[in-house]
Amino acid sequence: MYSQGLIGADGKTHEDEAFLAAFQARIDAEQKIEPNDPMPEGYRKTLIRQMSQHAHSEIIGMQPEGNWISRAPTLRRKAALLAKVQEEGGHGLYLYSAAETLGVSREEMTDQLLTGAAKYSSIFNYPALTWADIGAIGWLVDGAVIMNQNALCRCSYGPYARAMIRICKEESFHQRQGYEILITLCNGTEQQKELAQDALNRFWWPSLMMFGPSEGGSVHSEQSMLWKIKRFSNDDLRDKFINATVPQAEFLGLKVPDPDLTWNEEKQGYDHGDIDWDEFWRVVKGDGPCNRERLKNRNRVHREGAWVREAALAYAQKRAVREEAARVAAE
């Protein structure tokens, strides 16, 4: 999904050809690029954009699920959901700190999120209306995330790749807890199964949109591929996701809401129906069901937490002054 972070990314760069060729040779030799290494400005800018939007997605991604923590049906589900939402926040922190190695400050990135200057994944602008949605989010949204993130573990930028490896290790629990919720619902009453089907109906298409539109030879995308910031095309990852997910839906006895979905023997994969890219662009541009609410919440929480940050800094400063005074007195 985080290839959405590359939409509109400006990989333009101004270095001379010898510099760019030397850099490309390192990338082609699968050498990782580390924070202080020489790198094209376009590479740095593209990465900052993608990594910060990835981090913002994790932070905003806490909202749809956080909404259900107090209403989880059992203590077991509640503990799992609480842990999962905490981890989304943790993943955001790994990614912010990896992005900071490129010379952008945490405060700048936070500011870009709060003012709406930076985007986050389109999927988090959809509401979690029922408990079944928590199952669908874990299964489909985290499933799509895993497809993308596994590919990013081999990204050419060292700190990003390392953060992704850590995140991937944790993400598998997220998907499994979601799928388990749906198994329980699908083995339950007729009404519970309907809830599960309804969640799949609403989350299927937005999950496919997470991979971003077909690139169709976009210049930016080719540059990102060349620099190994991105290693697979949006369509390839989306197909991989569909092929993995359709049998899982069948196992649940649920129907994927795509009448055109058919098995293609030749490519050993599924062909899917048209994705409504108008809807995708509406959501990306700020007119999804929850865009305003998500940003409003994030701003409120940031504002309400300001006194905690201020108090912590004031306390640290006071203690530092006292310790210094005690040290001087002891000498």
Partner: peptide, 8 residues
């Protein structure tokens, strides 16, 4: 392992 922000 990585980095974090904290007041003290």
């Amino acid at each position: 392992a990585g980095s974090i922000h904290a007041a003290d």
